[in-house]
Write a protein that binds this DNA or RNA. Structure first.
Length: 231
DNA sequence: CCAGACGTTGTT
DNA sequence: GTCTGG
DNA sequence: CCAGACGTTGTT
DNA sequence: GTCTGG
């Protein structure tokens, strides 16, 4: 799955990677500090497309709270349990279906963390964190969904997940769904059809480096570049 | 029909 | 809002 | 995801 | 043990 990640790329690099012009970067996104340990309920950077007042589609860099709050929720606290959505089932889940149809987004990341539980070990055995990154340092674009909630238009997001395979499966059986640049336009287009969206959900994982890191990353309060140092 | 849930992960 | 369970 | 709290009343 | 918060 994906419950913790790093997003520390400079604003300029990120805007270049996602082809976002300066007027389409909102103030929150400009001010959001780099993070080596983004956790659920925190603000994260988000790329989305929507029509402006003239009906022009704009690609925006904004922020959202991680943990999707469905539009019908009475209490936004439910969002803390909606940090991931299964790509296999999101289309039929009341919590995610409308967002999958109309409110898709991308969440940039430089690395993510997975915790390995050793098979057959005692329940209290600490799990071991691993970092996953692109070998060439390319940015990850996690496939996400967003929702706008309540009188204050709280924007929240969830990260789609898929089955892990290969080397990654030895660490954990789920992974975030990562989309390559060639898929970004189609994913973000609010008018994209269900079949096209379904095809994108089947995107294979890109090749990655996977290595153990120190247990400091366990605490959501830790946040420094050293969290990505090999253990 | 109305009431109540609406999620993922992992563990047993 | 929409689906499932009673 | 992991860490940390987990409760009420009343008093200062 | 289970829920909430980050």
């Amino acid at each position: 799955m994906c419950g913790r990640y790093a997003d520390f790329r400079t604003l300029q690099d990120l805007a270049d990677a996602f082809v976002i012009t300066p007027e389409n970067i909102d103030a929150e996104a400009r001010g959001l500090p780099a993070s080596w340990n983004s956790a659920p309920t925190q603000r994260v950077r988000m790329v989305a497309e929507r029509a402006d007042d003239q009906g022009e589609i704009r690609r925006l860099l904004a922020t959202a709270r991680w943990g999707l709050v469905p539009s019908w929720a009475k209490d936004p606290a439910v969002g803390s349990r909606m940090i991931n959505a299964r790509s296999e089932t999101a289309a039929t889940k009341p919590s995610f279906a409308s967002a999958l149809a109309r409110r898709r987004c991308l969440l940039p990341a430089d690395a993510y963390y997975e915790w390995q539980r050793t098979p057959g070990s005692a329940a209290r055995t600490p799990r071991v964190p691993f970092a996953i990154r692109r070998a060439g340092g390319e940015v990850f674009a996690f496939a996400g969904l967003y929702e706008v909630w309540g009188p204050e238009d709280l924007v929240t997001v969830t990260i789609l997940t898929a089955a892990a395979s290969g080397e990654l499966a030895a660490v954990h059986d789920r992974r975030p769904l990562v989309l390559p640049p060639s898929a970004w336009d189609r994913w973000l287009d609010p008018a994209g059809g269900a079949q096209e969206v379904a095809d994108l959900l089947a995107m294979p994982a890109p090749p990655c480096e996977i290595y153990e890191v120190g247990s400091q990353v366990n605490s959501p309060r830790e946040n420094s570049a050293g969290l990505l140092d090999p253990a």
